[in-house]
Write a protein that binds this DNA or RNA. Structure first.
Lengths: 117, 117
DNA sequence: CTGGATCCTCCATGATACTG
DNA sequence: CAGTATCATGGAGGATCCAG
């Protein structure tokens, strides 16, 4: 159940009822508590699994793995395994992932001004 | 639009995983499945409860009410009750809510380009 | 028409233990 | 190190009924 179910994958590939609506599609990629933060971390450059975990505040390995797999299937990032000892896996944004920076960079500007609730 | 300035990139990448930084604050407002879509609908102008429900694809009344209350408490929108028969309640973005348009507008641009897998 | 009160389902996230 | 395998859980979201 931890992996991406057929149900979830189907949801990702299905076209929304709204024809020209890109907001929904973007929200399906930037979904959940971690996707946006993962992209933000990787905008600074490729990172290893443990580096990502630490940078994000140590979510569970299962959760982070699930999120990374989803983003990988959506073409936002790539997963590269180095057959070494100790093993090393590097995550890196694709061109599509980098193109999300437009969405990401608008957030801190708003959040910093609106710090108070 | 896929690229960002060096200044903004610096601002983006220099942020550690601090709990109070701008991205996290923005994500706390644009949280859940509906908040972002509610803001998008209201960017076009004030709307009534039923209008919002229909425009969003008819979420349950409870869910929509909960989300609207949260956004109201965060100062993103205002709730105005007209003591009429039948009752009428109008939701409208505050200045703070309108300032989220920068984040919102970046989404369709990405989503439309990346609609295909 | 708006939405409060209740009860319920589902799933993203997490805790823990284990493996190549 | 980077996961996988289980099991547990909180809370978002929903269904339904009811009230002002």
């Amino acid at each position: 159940m931890g992996t991406i179910g057929a149900e979830q994958l189907k949801q990702l590939t299905e076209e929304p009822a709204c024809p020209g609506c890109g907001v929904e599609r973007t929200l399906r990629v930037l979904d959940g508590k971690w996707a946006t933060l993962v992209v933000r971390e990787l905008l600074a450059g490729p990172k290893r699994f443990t580096e990502l975990r630490a940078a994000l505040g140590a979510p569970s390995a299962k959760t982070l793995t699930d999120r990374l797999r989803a983003l990988e299937h959506q073409g936002v990032l790539t997963r590269t395994v180095f057959a070494e000892v100790p093993p090393r896996v590097v995550y890196e944004l694709t061109a599509r992932g980098h193109s999300l920076s437009g969405v990401l960079h608008a957030m801190p500007a708003w959040g910093e001004v609106n710090g108070a609730r």
